[in-house]
Design a protein around this nucleic acid. Structure first.
Lengths: 337, 337
DNA sequence: CTGAAAGCGCTTACAG
DNA sequence: CTGAAAGCGCTTACAG
């Protein structure tokens, strides 16, 4: 495999490297004739620019970077895709960086800033723990998407999310309205002040309002995956056959729970009702379709991009709540007799 | 956000940049004392290396790159993840590059070769069309995974896949053994000589062996997604109520079909049997669980890495078939009376 | 409109 | 064990 540099192209075309560079970057100050000559050689060589060299030179922060944590999360992926769409119209070019579940998005920010000239960021699915103080330190515009960063009070960070607490409460209301009184909640760590804690609080709000006492044993810490939901359900229902509904914090988890119940000979929703969270396509196609809290993918994406562009133009950090909606599903029914 | 270079680190630590570079790269020829001094400054600065500069210098092809086409394909993603696992043990470092469905993996190869010192490749989910002549041109070791490249006769390309034709035939046998005689097949383009064409042939092999005449109208070109399967099924069953089984070329498609059937008031498997392909986790968790052809993720991954390493050590290009297996599922049953 | 030159942040022989 | 210097492939003022 032959690798050509712009020097090779320049020599072959009989021009200077700077001229080739200009052509490659679509600069206007090149004669039509020269441009053509250069492009011919580029074509002929199958020349590909070395972006390492390019980025090394170009140091002014131009890009906005979308950092997505978790390659497998369909919901976050959808949001990222939408963001790119909305970003098309704006002057700032956007790039997407996927990082692993365990990676540090703040390291990723530094890396992107240093290497790719990314000077502003949208963080998708970030967690607001100690490390997020890094955001304050970096000082560049940041938008947290699907995370509420209001209380952290960053000067340079906006956020977009649904009201997780209210959403969860509404879903629990709907379950309780079907007569259920023993509802297990499967989700993430409920301590602290992140979205999982708020969702948990929302569930509690509803129970309290309905005058139902909640048995702490009926909260199950579970992984957000099919397997996680499955295993949690199997373990849980060994001891809690009297529970008639399971509310989860993710659609994947809900589907895992549903499959587990079925394998234990329980029907959903006749014997046990199940709810999810996110409003993913898969949940809609599942049988039974999973009742879920839909986060408005498109609006989260649009708002995030808007807020970032706003800050880039000197606007203040703002915190926006977008409307969730409850997705009807076949997975919830009247409590069994 | 402050960006430090190794010059800054060197100055602060009171050593030369070359020394800092050596420490950063874990070279042995640095005194313990100096190393410590440098690492302290690195820590203090939160220094991150600029990989652009690094890659720009390092030009000897070291990496093996795994190119995955399609970020959303759970199956390919699983294979890629496994490959990384297996690659750990080998001397060659591996890196993964995700490209869009529509991107050209051969362009990606050139790019990676030029920029990241990737001198050998595993192509996951590549299609073997005209563009693949590029593989011959590049000359570096390539492994096609989940694609049969035997007939293309590249000197420098191995391949790993299941026998798609036999697999599809086996699945069709199983369906026909349940008494079905009207089976629709939903899948990709059946012309040419790629895996879709072979799967189609496999289905035909079985029908022929069973003495069943196939109605060409009962082949449906469908997208490989939930939505694709759904729409195809709705359109198809408007006109073909007498069909009692649908064989598909992907689990996603099969789940879409199942949901569509249910929405049309048909039960799976009581009224219509459905089968998938790939053996994904989601299909196993679906209700009904989807009978599928499992491609052995782990073995495809292991074999691909092995074949590549083999070629890197001068071995010949080889073409390996790994064993598929039929996954039992609740989605297939005796034909309705 | 075009070219010669400096420099982006690293690594790697080459001296010492 | 350590440092000075060249150079990776580009871009971008600066001249002309």
């Amino acid at each position: 495999m032959e690798i050509y540099t712009i020097r090779d192209v320049a020599r072959k075309a009989g021009v200077a490297v700077s001229t080739v560079s200009r052509v490659l970057n679509g600069r206007p100050d090149v004669s039509e004739e020269t441009r053509k000559k250069v492009l011919d050689v580029v074509e002929q060589f199958g020349f590909v620019q070395n972006r390492n060299a390019r980025n090394l030179k170009n140091t002014k922060p131009g890009y906005a970077a979308i950092i997505v944590r978790g390659r497998r999360n369909a919901f976050l992926n959808d949001v990222a895709t939408q963001m790119i769409e909305f970003a098309q119209g704006h002057k700032t070019p956007f790039l997407v960086k996927y990082i692993d579940e365990e990676d540090d998005e703040f390291d990723a920010m530094r890396q992107l800033y240093a290497e790719k000239r990314a000077g502003s960021f949208i963080l998708l699915g970030s967690r607001l723990d100690e490390r997020c103080e890094a955001v304050r330190a970096v000082g560049v515009p940041v938008v947290f998407a699907t995370v509420d960063a209001e209380r952290a009070e960053f000067d340079n960070a906006s956020s977009v999310c649904v009201d997780d607490r209210a959403a969860m409460r509404a879903m629990m209301d709907r379950i309780l309205d079907q007569g259920h009184t023993r509802v297990a909640v499967f989700g993430g760590n409920r301590d602290g002040d992140d979205i999982f804690a708020r969702r948990y609080q929302g569930a509690m709000d509803s129970l309290r309002a309905h005058g139902i006492e909640y048995d702490p044993d009926e909260y199950v810490l579970s992984r957000f995956s099919l397997e996680g939901g499955y295993e949690s359900a199997v373990r849980f229902f060994e001891k809690h056959q009297d529970v008639t509904a399971v509310m989860t914090m993710s659609d994947m988890m809900a589907m895992g729970v549903t499959r587990a119940l079925r394998d234990m000979g329980l029907r959903v929703p006749e014997d046990v009702s199940v709810s999810g969270f996110d409003g993913t396509v898969m949940a809609r196609y599942y049988v039974p379709s999973i009742a879920s809290v839909r986060q408005p993918v498109e609006e989260i994406a649009r708002k995030s991009v808007e807020l970032l562009c706003d800050m880039l133009e000197g606007g203040e950090a703002r915190h926006v709540k977008v409307d969730y909606s409850l997705v009807e599903g076949e997975s919830i029914a009247q409590v069994r007799a």
